[in-house]
Simulated assay, not measured.
Amino acid sequence: MDLGNHSVILEFILLGMSADPHVQALLFVLFLGIYIMTLMGNLLMLLVVRADSHLHTPMYFFLSHLSFLDVCLSSATVPRLLANLLSQRKTISVGSCLAQVFFLCESGGTEACLVSVMAYDRYVAICHPLLYGQMMSNQLCKGLVWGSWGLGFLDAFINILLAMNLDFCGDDSIPHYSCELPSLFPLSCSDVSTNLIILFCSSILHGIGTCFLIVYSYILIVSTILSISSSSGRSKAFSTCSSHLIVVLLFFGSAILRYLMPISGSPLELIFSVQYSVVTPLINPSSIA
């Protein structure tokens, strides 16, 4: 493409959440605390599941992978956010920016698939308890987990491969605290129509598709729970699913809105990103265990 008089951008400026130094200091303390608790909670979950042989079950097998993904998802954004809150020069190279996009898409996409797998696991446990061991075999569990990783990688690889062919020129400011594909497209002087179509299709198939599977699984679960004659049994079954479902809906709702809503630089975009990439990894271990 002929760039004319435009100079090619080699690095971006992450504008972050606020330009006020006092607000930045408060945000640094807040996000540092969240990040430390996220690491401690998820790493502790990994250690407990690995150490206790009684937890070597399909549910905790999935949960250990989810905890690892939460560490990856949070680490893809929060360290850069913390560094920028302390730095006067809030720049990131184009290569580092695209790398952050890839790891964010890979970990987020894999988590979406894995959470749908966990919803299926709960469906089998509640709706077919006598067949649980047979239906959730060790081979199937491993296949579902590695399939989730594979789909997440494929989604991230396709989108980042197209993004690597873009030329960036003109404005170099990203009104965000991290690099995300929707924020990069307005900065490109290349034709991004193909990128937008692929991102839209992958968001529909990868995000809404897995969300549909989760909702469908929980419809069957609720239907089974309501058929339980014992009120204590219904309460116990609901308690094991309600907190998980709330966190899942928050994760999917914020992620889908972030990637499908028109790019406007609105504060809502920051809120949605914080919700799915910072807050959800913090509360997942306690809500899904």
Rank of each mutant, 00 (worst) to 15 (best):
L3I: 09
S7I: 05
V8I: 14
G16C: 07
M17W: 05
M17L: 06
M17F: 08
S18C: 04
V23P: 01
L32F: 12
Y35R: 09
Y35T: 00
M37C: 10
L39P: 00
G41F: 14
S53C: 01
L55F: 03
L55A: 02
F62E: 12
S64D: 15
D70F: 05
L73R: 09
V78T: 12
P79W: 07
L82V: 12
I92G: 03
S93F: 06
S93Q: 10
S96K: 11
A99N: 11
F102N: 00
F103R: 10
L104F: 10
L104A: 03
C105H: 09
E106I: 12
S107N: 02
E111W: 15
E111S: 08
Y123G: 01
C127M: 02
P129R: 02
L131F: 07
L144R: 04
G147D: 13
G147M: 11
W149C: 10
G150H: 13
L151M: 09
G152I: 10
F153W: 12
L154D: 01
A156W: 00
N159D: 10
L162M: 14
L162S: 07
F168E: 00
D171A: 00
H176V: 00
S193F: 05
L196E: 10
I197E: 15
H206A: 07
G207T: 02
I208K: 06
L213M: 14
Y218H: 10
Y218I: 11
L220H: 07
S223K: 06
S230G: 01
S232D: 14
S232Q: 15
K236D: 01
F238Y: 12
S239K: 12
G253I: 05
S254I: 00
R258H: 15
L260P: 11
L260W: 01
L260C: 10
V274T: 09
Y276I: 00
S277A: 05
V278Q: 09
T280M: 15
